[in-house]
Design a protein around this nucleic acid. Structure first.
Length: 259
DNA sequence: ATGGCTGCAAGATGCAGA
């Protein structure tokens, strides 16, 4: 079972790329972030014609998340991260697919820091910690995946000293992320590739992709039942080099077992 | 330190992204 997280940076601007990538790699589950489309503007027909069941939570202009399942319908559990009834951003959606619980998240960027946006990011991380604790305890596989907008360590950024004051790499951010990890979650990509330099995002400026000036900010977190099934993990980094590409690349894991 | 690029909602430019 191949599960992928992909920040598409506009589902409609990226639709040709997305369909090509679906056809070439046939993932089983795809978690999308930054749909940048209101609920009614999601290209549902094209996704279904490609062979995928889908649920999504859109929003005008910004944010938006969705879960695709090949030859299956995701069973929705929730479309809001608990803990703040005032939060109107579409940043979380959760479903089960073939017995695996999938949490698809788009964590706030948080820049500029410090400031209200950074405060929102830290509150969101704390809400995620509380919800993650409940998910972690399940005896069935749980994959908490998405665009975390967190650079976990110095090896996950091309030039750490340039990012120390950025909301993605500030000490408060890494510590909040660390509190979630300390529940026992397995960072799938880093666990299988402990020494590799792996990036999942390259910004549009300064030929960042050509220079490989990237960040690793899209992550798959696995609970013990999921970690036991983990077989492979990687990044479809060539997709970042396609014409009209998102600034993120798809990040995938493969779980073994009956699926 | 700044700006470089991209998409959205606009119908010019400002916001947001990371």
């Amino acid at each position: 079972m191949r599960i992928v997280t992909y920040n598409v940076n506009s589902i409609n601007a990226r639709l040709p790329n997305l369909l090509r990538w679906l056809q070439e790699t046939t993932p089983d589950v795809v978690c999308l972030q930054e749909l940048k489309a209101p609920q009614e503007k999601f290209p549902e027909a094209a996704i279904r014609e490609a062979g995928y069941g889908v649920i999504w939570h859109g929003q005008k202009s910004y944010n938006g998340v969705g879960i695709l399942a090949r030859n299956a319908e995701p069973t929705e559990i929730r479309r809001v991260l608990p803990g703040d009834p005032e939060d109107a951003h579409s940043r979380y959606i959760e479903a089960t697919v073939n017995g695996v619980l999938i949490g698809c998240l788009y964590l706030p960027n948080g820049n500029p820091a410090p400031g209200p946006k950074f405060d929102y990011k830290l509150r969101w991380l704390e809400r995620l910690r509380i919800h993650a604790a409940e998910l972690f305890a399940r005896e069935t596989p749980v994959v908490l995946t998405g665009d975390y907008n967190v650079i976990p360590t110095e090896r996950d950024v091309y030039k750490p000293e340039r990012w120390v004051d950025d909301a993605l790499f500030r000490v408060e951010t890494r510590e909040a992320f660390g509190r979630i990890m300390s529940q026992g979650w397995v960072d799938a990509v880093r666990t299988l590739h402990p020494d590799a330099q792996i990036f999942t995002f390259w910004d549009y400026f300064r030929n960042a992709y050509q220079r490989d000036a990237g960040l690793r900010i899209d992550h798959h977190l696995l609970n013990p039942a999921a970690a036991r099934l983990l077989e492979r993990a990687g990044v479809d980094r060539e997709v970042r080099g396609w014409d009209k590409a998102s600034d993120h690349a798809p990040v995938w894991i493969e779980l073994g077992g009956s699926n």
